[in-house]
């Protein structure tokens, strides 16, 4: 009965997005991505939140929401020199590693700046409706950028 209750509480916390470090499970990494190549290559090894129909901005907003729940940025949200109205893909790694107040404020600014920059570029010109062969190239570059970080934790 007690075990069932604890399990139920865990389930509710996980579904609410509260990082597991807060209730005892440590060192979990999560990748928020809209890039199916990233999901396909590493989905079995790392926990992923795959935003199938999500945009670059949707990934940033989802990561911001996670930060507000106590998660920590592990990779920079503006990886790569491709502009936010050029590539449609973005993969960002977050974790439940502990975060002090100063780090939280710093990360909050980082993600907010990323969102602001993305909105600025989208207001200049929307991301084009690229043909499939270009989309594949953008996916390959995005995967390469996040792979540098993935290899650190595997």
């Amino acid at each position: 009965m007690v075990v069932c209750l604890i399990y139920k509480i865990y389930t509710i916390l996980i579904e609410a997005g509260v990082p597991e470090s807060i209730y005892g499970v440590s060192n979990m990494y999560l990748i928020v991505t809209n890039n199916q190549l990233c999901l396909g290559k590493y989905g079995a090894q790392i926990k992923m939140e795959y935003l199938e129909e999500g945009s670059y901005l949707d990934v940033l907003l989802k990561v911001r929401d996670y930060l507000h729940l106590g998660w920590k940025l592990e990779t920079h949200p503006m990886t790569g020199s491709l502009k936010p109205n050029q590539t449609p893909y973005k993969s960002i790694m977050i974790s439940n590693n502990p975060l002090d107040q100063e780090e939280f404020y710093s990360q909050e600014i980082t993600i907010s700046n990323g969102i602001a920059a993305c909105r600025k570029f989208q207001s200049i010109r929307k991301t084009p409706d690229w043909p499939e062969h270009l989309l594949e190239d953008f996916r390959i570059v995005d995967l390469s950028l996040i792979e540098g970080a993935i290899q650190r934790i595997l």
């Binding site: 790569g80 020199s81 570059v141 390469s144 950028l145 792979e147 540098g148």
Partner: peptide, 8 residues
């Protein structure tokens, strides 16, 4: 130095 991955 730029050092992020493919083409970077």
């Amino acid at each position: 130095l730029q050092s992020q991955g493919l083409l970077h």
